[in-house]
Design a protein around this nucleic acid. Structure first.
Lengths: 197, 197, 197, 197
DNA sequence: TGTTAAACGAGACGGTACGTCGAGTCTTGGA
DNA sequence: TCCAAGACTCGACGTACCGTCTCGTTTAACA
């Protein structure tokens, strides 16, 4: 029945199988949508036994979560040009691009959708992923505060919600496009309100 | 309350069955979450045959949509005090309350979640429900423009996104609470940028 | 005068599906042995859903039991020549032939084998099938008693065990062939001990 | 100067593991029936790795066979009182007792059941085990022949089938009890037919 | 007396089949 | 014509074992 190389044993799992599963899940999501991602489908496409998936992931969303984890950070770490306006305009545009057009952005939308039905997933999504993204989102503002471009007493959390909230809203609710003009305008509103001078 | 016209059926559609189905779906969503809502479960609880559900609704989300429709408008129609600040502060607070605590708010979150997996549902949700809500959201701004409180050239759509986007973001993504201070601050940011003097 | 509400199966089960299942099970047993008979295999070969099998039969042995039922009686009803020796010699030879060479004989051996692992199956096999065969086995002796060829006080059950037991023993345990000489000798031993004169 | 050839195993197999496996298999059969005997279950209960079982036994029936081997001979070796009637009455009663009530009797029934599905097992069961039992069963008759109690030309094999067949038949097929009266009657029938005077 | 090769426990792996759930379709008989 | 009932095919679920394949860890015969 099989003659492939076995990598897993008591001292560790098969990295080969792990990667195959994550890629298969990603591919299926892209090709057939969330409902098209099934454990059986992942197993078949990855050339892996169902039990191997169940051994390491409690459910299909956990597979997607793990597949997602590896992609997010690299895409969405803001640059540091030394100018607040430049930094946040660039970062918001990158965020919009990520959410609307990238493959991991699609995974994010699917997971966020599923999180509406599943509070445990919602919590894990926030704790393991979104909080780190918030940390990255915060960087330009913190650097501007250190440079004196923004007041030290700024409520950074609320400011972040104002900056990125409308982008997520368009992506998740209205489905409207999120062009550069929209993200630039968000940045402008923020700067108009908070920036010294 | 029927939305379809009756033909000359001998008996017509059973209003009794229709109501039983809608209530069963609502109850199941509240008790067991979205995954606990199944056609078989609705049928069993409503004392109705599966075929009767399939005859009138294409899928379980359509049942929820119909159950949802009747609740939204009454909750979220903004008042008109003649003062822009008062109106939008009140409306944003009401919206936050609706989304976070009400039963139809829970249905909204579930449907929006499912819409991330299902573009057709997303489109129907927008066309049949969210667009009407956007119309209501727009009213305070339009009245202020007519009164001269806001400039005639204001980009109302973008302004609305800035106003309500952060609320939806907290509800759907971060799960953070949406207190009155948050909604008032949103209103303040908007007024600071756009209001004449 | 109609009865009041009738709640039950309005449609009845599919005779077509039933026959297909029974035939598929029989074929699989013949082709691949007992271990080759699986619910999935039956379903696939019969062109039937697994659920349909589970709806009507608790397990694969029940399918085989039902398939078996229809075959046994016709093969093993003893003749009545009016002479005890002739009757039992013929009947024992027929029984040996049935058990060792016929298709339903193979099903019998498989079911009897499985019954060693499953007391419930053993009970059902006895109650639904073997008891009827015992009734048929008993006929020649009873007729001989009525004719006066055998004493009225004969312990028929024990006599039957002596007559057929060695045949089953060879079939199920030693695997030795059961030639006509063997069955004739069984009959001779019986007649030598019990027959008048 | 020793030969430099070194063959094989320096360590030898673990008798401890072997015993643990055999006992675990026996226990599982007694507690949960044949279907409850699995390689994984044996390994877990014996505190042994699956591979250790596969190294020494081709299948679970081989484990049971080996467990069975050690028990049969001691239970079923007939005594020698010098009187045929006494010997076979005692032996048949002991055989019935063994088959119906003892633990190794249960193993025998399970293996015989499985042998109906597996011709290779059937052959091994006969060659390795049943033939030796037949040898023991034959002893009382052979001694009687030597003593002149039975005719020298007696067909011993057929006589044995007549003697023990009905006992196995009750055990494996009808499930009827096998009381002392039944075994004594079997002995009586045999003696009536064959014994000199 | 240290080397070394087997047997060992542990357990991950690709698989098959299990028995269950729900989806969506179809047919019947009663109202 | 609508409806309750429910049998049907289909696909996926999550579980239990199968038999194979490494891993390090004993351990006893040999060097």
């Amino acid at each position: 029945m099989k003659s492939t190389t076995h990598r897993g044993n008591r001292h560790g799992r098969s990295e080969e199988a792990r990667q195959a599963v994550l890629e298969a899940a990603d591919d299926l999501l892209a090709e057939r949508g969330f409902a098209g991602v099934t454990i059986e489908g992942i197993a078949a496409r990855a050339g892996v036994a169902k039990q191997t998936i169940y051994r390491w992931w409690p459910s299909k969303v956990d597979v997607l979560l793990e597949a997602f984890t590896e992609d997010m950070a690299e895409h969405l770490t803001p640059q540091d040009t030394g100018d607040l306006g430049t930094d946040i305009r660039a970062h918001l545009a990158t965020l919009a691009e990520f959410l609307t057009t990238s493959d991991p952005g699609a995974v994010f939308r699917a997971l966020t959708g599923q999180a509406q039905h599943d509070p445990q997933l919602a919590a894990r999504l926030r704790d393991d992923h979104l909080s780190h993204q918030r940390d990255r989102d915060r960087l330009p503002l913190q650097r501007a505060i250190e440079r004196g471009e923004l007041p030290a007493g700024l409520d950074v959390e609320t400011a972040l919600d104002h900056l990125v909230g409308p982008i997520y809203y368009r992506v998740l609710v209205t489905g409207a496009p999120v062009p550069r003009t929209f993200t630039d305008d968000l940045a402008a509103a923020f700067l108009h309100r908070h920036q010294h001078q």
